[in-house]
């Protein structure tokens, strides 16, 4: 029921937003898709990725390059998550042998390598990137309005949320949660630890890749600079603030951070503010939020709320 209300609210919002604000809504939705995947990876399988925007970039470039070469845009959009997942599957074999900080740095390095390769690759447009990408079209209908993309993004968020929640509430999801805290016991219980780690890495990459694919058609141009390391950091902050291992938390985290950054950008671009104000403020808000959350609600906002509710329910039962 709560989900239905949230969905209805999210579906109605684009029709009331002024056109300029729809961009925020779309970017928020794209982040939410990637963060749902990242929350799955970090919260359920206990793996840290500081390079998740690599997969957004791979998805975006897949869609962009296919479109540039005349492949129907819908096929490009479908290919985006698949290629991102495939890339994760390939690099995952070696790097998922790492744990904790080492894995985090390996994923970060991966993104830095990807960005410099893209920046030098002529076939990907180099530092200038790909420009003049077509709008997404399907069955003769071209999505050329912000509102179309708002609906597409909402559908993407719903799809990733449904997939993620079906996955975590299944046998596979229990295996993932088990291997996050006690991999040896999980393996002895029949959980194929390595394969599951790879699976969740690939799924999280697919979600980011789908977001990247939509981004490519929405914005119409791509450059390595569209996917900075800061974007990966943003994903992590969103996931942690909302609460790792909570899909609702991923959505809430993406919403809160996007709105906060938006507010600060508006503030920072007021007349009289120095030119570096927007980036300084957004870095500051990431840092402060991350510290505040880890310090005061280490499990993240949504799990903390659920815990409170659980405690209240228990007290209530005891008193009655």
């Amino acid at each position: 029921m709560k989900w239905i209300i949230a969905l209805a609210a999210a579906a109605v919002v684009p029709f009331f937003l002024p056109p300029g604000q729809l961009t925020v809504y779309i970017l928020l939705g794209l982040s939410a898709m990637a963060v749902v995947g990242l929350s799955l990876l970090m919260g359920y399988a206990g793996q840290v990725s500081l390079g998740q925007a690599s997969f957004t970039a791979i998805g975006a470039y897949t869609a962009g390059l296919l479109a540039v070469h005349g492949v129907p845009t819908l096929l490009g959009l479908l290919a985006a998550p698949l290629v991102a997942a495939l890339a994760a599957g390939l690099v995952g074999v070696p790097i998922l042998r790492l744990r904790g900080h080492q894995l985090a740095f390996a994923t970060l390095a991966l993104q830095l390598i990807l960005l410099s390769v893209l920046g030098d690759a002529d076939w990907a447009g180099g530092a200038v990137g790909l420009q003049g990408l077509p709008y997404l079209s399907a069955g003769g209908f071209e999505l050329n309005q912000d509102r179309d993309y708002a609906c597409l993004v909402l559908a993407g968020v719903v799809l990733t949320t449904l997939i993620a929640s079906a996955l975590v509430r299944s046998r596979v999801g229990r295996g993932l949660r088990a291997l996050a805290t006690a991999p040896v016991a999980a393996g002895a219980s029949g959980v194929p630890v390595g394969a599951y780690r790879l699976l969740v890495f690939a799924v999280s990459a697919a979600f980011a890749g789908l977001a990247g694919g939509i981004y490519a058609f929405y914005v119409g141009y791509l450059a390595p600079g569209s996917f900075p390391v800061l974007l990966s950091v943003e994903y992590v902050v969103m996931a942690v603030v909302g609460g790792l291992g909570s899909i609702a938390g991923a959505l809430l985290g993406a919403t809160l951070i996007t709105l906060a950054v938006q507010l600060l950008t508006t503030l920072a671009t007021q007349p009289g503010m120095p030119s570096y104000a927007p980036s300084v403020l957004s870095y500051a808000v990431y840092a402060l939020l991350l510290i505040a959350v880890v310090r005061y609600v280490p499990k993240g906002i949504v799990p903390a709320l659920l815990l409170r509710k659980g405690i209240l329910a228990t007290l209530h039962r005891r008193s009655s």
């Binding site: 229990r174 949660r177 088990a178 805290t181 006690a182 040896v184 016991a185 002895a188 291992g245």
Partner: peptide
């Protein structure tokens, strides 16, 4: 196992 590792958070 001897050290009885349970799956925390479950």
């Amino acid at each position: 196992f001897q050290d009885a590792p349970v799956f925390r958070g479950m």
